[in-house]
């Protein structure tokens, strides 16, 4: 078990190096820092001096991989690769183009992101699993049929519509909650209610349908027939036998996203003006702040790998076959 976890952690290292090289290539090789400077400065103000100044301010004036002018170890460390990419491994993200410390920003913005993502995740999981169980219980009836139709319709609607429509209806027409904004402490609930609700509703369609398929697949298995042959009621069969087995694929599909909750949800945060990591990322994209995007890419992949690890561990929790072998 422990050996397994350690091996997975070892396996993560080449992946992170791969991610790092990929982002390095994307940000510094495909386009040179000169290109970026030119774009940031705008066509009108481009002079060689301005470009050099822009680069020097942000530490992009060093060689990419190897610094001939430096001495000793600095030949390798005093380079863009070391300063901008390798340092990510120790979670040193450096400064954003606007000069603020990215690490600090991430710390302060994590709270609001989690405040919206965690309730969304838990509530969403509960609602969709219950809804899917309901459909599975009434499978092959009209309720099931129309339930599936509703799911297909709901998953055909753009998430933008849920957000824009929800904001318009709940905040503008009914004046129930503020349209956007955020406050700390208990006050946050007022601002979080609508985005959480909208996120949950937007996810109902596809998740419910997926879970329903899993339930139906389990219901078709032999052990369910055995359970019925014992004289158990349909509810007992569904809750004691089917649900437990179905939790294996459901949990493993779901656990992988748990660490990514830190990243926040881009759209919702940006629409509702919540100062989380999602809106931070979008702002950085719009401002073409490469340092922030680079940092977020790295954090994202670290979290994804943690998610994979958690998935493997969650297998051992729900599946005795994995736990005991």
């Amino acid at each position: 078990m422990l050996a397994y976890v350690i091996r997975r952690l070892f396996y993560a290292i080449p992946i992170l190096i791969g991610v790092n090289l990929l982002t390095f290539t994307l940000f510094f090789v495909v386009n040179t820092p000169d290109d970026m400077a030119r774009m940031q400065l705008g066509v009108k103000r481009v002079t060689p001096e301005a470009i050099e100044k822009w680069k020097a301010e942000r530490g992009y004036d060093k060689p990419l991989l190897y610094n001939e002018n430096a001495a000793g170890a600095a030949r390798l460390t005093d380079t863009i690769f070391f300063e901008k990419s390798a340092k990510l491994f120790v979670f040193d993200f450096g400064r954003a183009d606007d000069g603020r410390d990215i690490g600090h920003e991430i710390k302060t913005r994590m709270g609001p992101s989690l405040a919206i993502a965690v309730p969304t995740f838990l509530l969403g999981l509960f609602v969709t699993v219950s809804f899917a169980l309901l459909l599975a219980f009434f499978r092959a009836t009209n309720l099931d049929f129309w339930g599936v139709v509703l799911c297909v319709a709901m998953m055909s609607i753009s998430s933008l519509f849920y957000i824009i429509g929800g904001q318009y209806l709940v905040s503008k027409v009914w004046h129930l909650v503020p349209i956007s904004g955020y406050a700390g402490g208990l006050d946050a609930a007022r601002f979080l209610l609508l985005p959480v609700l909208i996120s949950v509703v937007a996810g109902i369609g596809s998740s419910t349908r997926w879970y329903r398929t899993i339930f139906l697949e389990e219901i078709g298995k032999d052990y369910v027939r055995t359970a019925r042959a014992k004289g158990l009621s349909e509810a007992a069969v569904l809750f004691r036998h089917v649900l437990r087995n179905a939790m294996i694929p459901i949990l493993t599909g779901v656990v992988v996203v748990i660490p990514l909750l830190f990243m926040g949800s881009l759209l919702v945060e940006s629409f509702f003006g919540i100062p989380g990591l999602g809106s931070y990322t979008i702002d950085a994209i719009n401002a073409q702040d490469f340092a922030v995007v680079r940092a977020m890419v790295f954090i994202g992949s670290v979290l994804y790998i943690v998610g994979l690890l958690l998935t493997d561990l969650s297998y051992t929790l729900v599946d005795p076959r994995v736990r005991l072998q």
Binding site: D222, Y223, T226, A229, R244, D319, R321
Partner: peptide, 12 residues
């Protein structure tokens, strides 16, 4: 049933 391998619930 015929298949003892699949006829028992694997997680109970």
């Amino acid at each position: 049933f015929q298949e003892p391998a699949t006829s028992l619930n694997p997680v109970l």
